[in-house]
Design a protein around this nucleic acid. Sequence first.
DNA 1: CTGTTAGCGCTTTCAG
DNA 2: CTGAAAGCGCTAACAG
Lengths: 361, 361
Amino acid sequence: MDVSTPSAVNGHAPAAKAATIRDVAERAQVSVASVSRVLNGSDAITESTRRRVLDAVEYLRYVPHVGARSLSTSRTDTIGVILPDLYGEFFSELIRGMDLAARAHGKHLIVSSSHGDTEETLAALRSMRGRVDGMIVLSPHLRAANLAADVAGRMPVVLMNGGLDEAGRPSIAIDNHGAAVTAVEHLRATGRRRIAHIRGAAGNLEADIRAEGYASALVDQEPIIVEGDFTQAAGHRAATRLLALDQRPDAVFAANDMMALGAMLAFQEAGVRCPEDVAVIGFDDVPLAALVRPTLTTLRVNIAEMGRRGVERLIGLVQAGPNGAPDSACEIVRPLLVERQSTAAAETAGSTTVNPTAQPL
Amino acid sequence: MDVSTPSAVNGHAPAAKAATIRDVAERAQVSVASVSRVLNGSDAITESTRRRVLDAVEYLRYVPHVGARSLSTSRTDTIGVILPDLYGEFFSELIRGMDLAARAHGKHLIVSSSHGDTEETLAALRSMRGRVDGMIVLSPHLRAANLAADVAGRMPVVLMNGGLDEAGRPSIAIDNHGAAVTAVEHLRATGRRRIAHIRGAAGNLEADIRAEGYASALVDQEPIIVEGDFTQAAGHRAATRLLALDQRPDAVFAANDMMALGAMLAFQEAGVRCPEDVAVIGFDDVPLAALVRPTLTTLRVNIAEMGRRGVERLIGLVQAGPNGAPDSACEIVRPLLVERQSTAAAETAGSTTVNPTAQPL
DNA sequence: CTGTTAGCGCTTTCAG
DNA sequence: CTGAAAGCGCTAACAG
């Protein structure tokens, strides 16, 4: 052993260049096939061969080249995720859930954001060819998502884009319509009779469905819908417009929590009390919802769980292979109503004068 | 053309199996080499060849197989990121910044979390071999990070683990010590004389350095340190313990914003006013910091920007190649003091009776 | 049980 | 300007 080589000191080969399976075979005096076998724990192998191989691996610090491996096995053990964006709690929770599930199955995750652009979605998808075994596509636009599924060709794809009408494609979607109805009904049940809606970005599928659900659940009133884009600032602006109305609403259903929070802030600034003067309900149940005062009633979506399910669904498809039973089901996630202070019943609300001097967090 | 094949209708080949470069060559009546040339825009190519190739590509919906390509070019155009966790705003912001930078340079991102475990960190690192051109490693433990850099062998690695003493390795770190000193000095400048510290998890490098910086900046007082773990709940517990002290502190420096918020909540519940009775300063400047009341003074770290810098640094290393000028610099990010209400000067604080009835968000 | 060998899909000399 | 052929590192028959 050439002790003059620095790294030879700790019994390792100089790592000028990463060792290949051939180097290992050579050093262990066996064929590459045997090395491969040992490393993949496949066949029966003589204990002595195994030892020699493992020693060589150790000595050379050999790490199999996944790229090469997947080229020959045509498996990558990686799943691709295409998101419209990476900003905000929704996506980070989703990724976390997916990562957890992926790890549990020994898969890798490769994430790409498309910035909501259909072209970019497709570009991202293409660039994943040969890099992943399957994909999960989130897109606020039905078209992009479906297109993506087409482009993918034989690669399994799970759609998670909020639409329920993914006929023929494996997908997971939130029951946006049903949840919106639940929101309105809850507001009515707590005594509100003039309910407004701050909707999400135009053209966004989920926003459309929630708005539609809202409208369909109204009783004795016309829809009062103001545009938003899922940001807190938009919620603030929308609420300001609502306040300027001749007939102010006594309740607001915001298409997500961040807008609900923005609206609450606007109300507060205007001296309009929540929930006494106006009730507010959000959607998502971001952690923040329980931290503000009044705490925010909302429709909880277990995002990480959705991510997990998406991954497991996809893994199922991958394992089934192209000849597996065709999976065309749309799994539905039903948001859960979480009642908090912001929609406390109108009649009892007035008496909720708990420690008015406290500095709410 | 076989019009009976469904997809032949829109002028495409049946996509039973993804087309390879050979299929394209065959259909275009050229060699695979020419196809490769056209696709890589390399050599000069006859216009007619180019056309034929592009037509074939279009017809076959050919997408190059990145895995195969990288096997022969030994480039992957992908950078790997190993994080201790994926939970919370810090990491999502970091990933967002990294993604932005990666996209800007036409690179992909592959993220893996190690759950803080050194073994897992190494495993993740190994599994990235051949999949990435370089890595960014975040680890709260110096050891894991350094080990990782070793294991990586010839692969460029940028460390982002909070330690400043990464002698000999390219790295990016927050000036935790300096920022902690700034926090203490700010508290003193606003009249506080008995400053406590809620520290981060034991064994966490950043937590250690912040605590040390805190202690070093004290004047005329002994350190008052209570343990935390970066969660809001820990901040709450820690504050409760501080309140039980014989001599209550008149200021608290929490090692991050979430703990600061938890502490504020605890103070509020105990009827202790902030900032009048006790000032609170956090670290990070999460969005929430500006939304609570009182708004939270904190040390802002531009996380997305850090992510961007990490990626660009790594890309630089990758392009420089193994023979590039050795880069052993530690880039330092200095947090910025953002003064808000939670540390308003003691003497003026009393008069800040702005609209006490407002429902703070 | 182990070695030989033919690819996986692509890039890249090296000759025409 | 274009084609033939040699790999990149690994796996998986197929023989021994």
